[in-house]
Every structure is written in structure tokens, then in C-alpha cells.
Design a protein around this nucleic acid. Structure first.
Ligand SMILES: [Zn+2]
Ligand SMILES: [Zn+2]
Ligand SMILES: [Zn+2]
Ligand SMILES: [Zn+2]
Lengths: 134, 134
DNA sequence: ATCAATTGCGTTATGCTATAACGTGTGTCA
DNA sequence: TGACACACGTTATAGCATAACGCAATTGAT
């Protein structure tokens, strides 16, 4: 899934997410973009659908919220988006995105053993980041 | 968290979930229990909150739905509910609940290394079960 | 026994999240 | 030019979850 140039709405939504240091709900994004002509949830959801498809944004299932992808460019097999995990701080909202071979392969092995064909894997750890746990 | 005897509403909700072979949303549970006097979502959500607390039920974050716990009694460290993972078939709806040491420890190691204090971990694999993938 | 605290319950209203369905405009490519 | 794909805007609706109120039953001191 190679990303073409973003449309105006897609760019606006992506910029808002990229500047945020915490996940945002679609409706929060909508409110941030009222000044740019956004009026309805669908304008946000349609942009998000594409951004998710391009791998520029992730959905956090346990929050019903979205974050910009923060993969380091140097990441190994997670380029093209292998399975990724998120550590979500419930105090400050900070999200750490990471890829872990061992976890990915272990879940893959389980699936192979059971004949299960994985399509998308969600891994989210809720808790307190180092700064907030101190 | 030791579970006291369930109240009437808690028992009703648990029985409905336990008999189901697929996850159910709170509103679907509500509809199933109209004949038993359920009228409002809160009656379901309040029972679910307790059942989750007792570890008798799990919430599937990627579906906004609930399943009865299906741990084998013989399960190792997952008694008392260590981290558990779910494989969810997007065709037939069947859910397999399992515990995997390696995954659990690996995520624990990552957290320890980063100083992150995990509170609750969500692992959900969406895909096709062996029967539906055939 | 009685009072206070806790817990469960029922009801109404509300808020948050997500999609259906319809129509418009624009660019691409036979 | 006509067919198609795609982004966009709008209105309405569906689906998920909680706030706030009050009442009833239970428990556990005093
Ligand atoms: Zn990413
Ligand atoms: Zn934090
Ligand atoms: Zn379980
Ligand atoms: Zn299946």
C-alpha cells in the first residue's frame, strides 16, 4: 500500500494528529478542524480511513482513538507494518509505539499451529509511563 | 478478586454470554434479556462491570463486545488472570482465548526496560479460524 | 434494635462513536 | 464524449456507554 499525495482533508487530519502528543478521538479532531471548514464526522472518518490504509495513522482499539504512526525510519521488519504494539499511559496520555520480533513470531507460531489466518493484530498495554509512575 | 455469589442480573448476563458461541454487544445482551425484565442498557453494563471484575467475562476491545471467560481450569499462570490473548474469527465469530508465556514475559520485559508500569494488556488477533480459512 | 454505610437496582436522559444514503464536482482514460 | 473512479459535503441514523436521580435490601457496627 504505497501512499499517493494526500488530499487536503487527509493532510489536515494527519497534521492535527502529528502535532498531538496524545491520541485523539475522531470528534476531537473534528473540533480542531472546524476553522478549516470541517462540519461533519464523515469528513474526519473518511480521511482517517485512508490514513490508516496508508499506514500513516494507527487506531487504538482500547481508546476508540487515533495516533500518527511513530515508527523510527530505521525499524526493521515493521516497515510496511508488521505487527506493532502500543504502551499507553493512562495518566499523561503518551503513547509509545514499538515492534517486537519475539512477540510477533510467537503469536504467528500460535496461529500456524491452530490453522488460524491472522489479518490484523492489536496489542495495547495500558498503564503508567516511566515519568508518571515515578 | 474472589467472586461472591452472583446477583440475579449478573447471573442472567453471565448465562447469556456463556451460552453464546460468539461475542455479544451489551445491547444484544439487553435484547436477549427483555423477557427477564431488562429494560435499560445500564442493567447490562452494571452486571458486566462486576463480571469483568470477577474475571468471569472479558471485553474484546476491537469489537466493543464481551465473551465469557473460557480458560481451561488447568491453565498455568493465567489463573487469577495473567495476560490473555484472543483469536477472533471475522467470518464465524468464534473466539479462542489463550495464554502464552513467551508473549507475556516479552511484553513484561519491554515494560521493565522502559520503566512502564502495565495495568492491563489487550492482545486480539482478527482473522479467519481454521474452519473458515479452509 | 437502630442507625449508617454499602451495594444493587430501575429509570430517564444524555453523550460519544461510527456509518448509511444521497447528491455534487473533478479528473482520467478509452 | 461518455464511463468510471474518487474525493467531497450534507443530513440522518445507528450503535456504544455513562451521568444523575431515587429507592430497596444488606450488612455491620454501636
Ligand atoms: Zn506505525
Ligand atoms: Zn505518563
Ligand atoms: Zn479468561
Ligand atoms: Zn471461523
Amino acid at each position: 500500500m504505497i501512499a499517493p499525495a494526500l488530499t487536503k482533508n487527509q493532510s489536515l487530519v494527519f497534521e492535527v494528529l502529528n502535532r498531538s502528543d496524545a491520541p485523539m478521538s475522531a470528534y476531537t479532531i473534528l473540533d480542531r478542524l472546524r476553522d478549516h471548514g470541517f462540519r461533519a464526522p464523515l469528513q474526519v472518518y473518511r480521511a482517517l480511513d485512508k490514513l490508516l490504509e496508508f499506514g500513516l495513522v494507527h487506531r487504538l482499539e482500547s481508546l476508540n482513538a487515533f495516533v500518527a504512526c511513530s515508527h523510527a525510519q530505521s525499524d526493521c521488519c515493521s516497515r510496511g507494518h508488521g505487527t506493532v504494539a502500543f504502551a499507553i499511559c493512562e495518566s499523561c496520555g503518551h503513547v509509545s509505539e514499538f515492534h517486537d520480533h519475539a512477540v510477533d513470531h510467537r503469536l504467528g507460531d500460535w496461529a500456524k499451529e491452530k490453522g488460524f489466518k491472522p489479518a490484523k493484530t492489536t496489542i495495547e498495554i495500558r498503564g503508567l509511563c516511566s515519568a508518571c509512575a515515578a
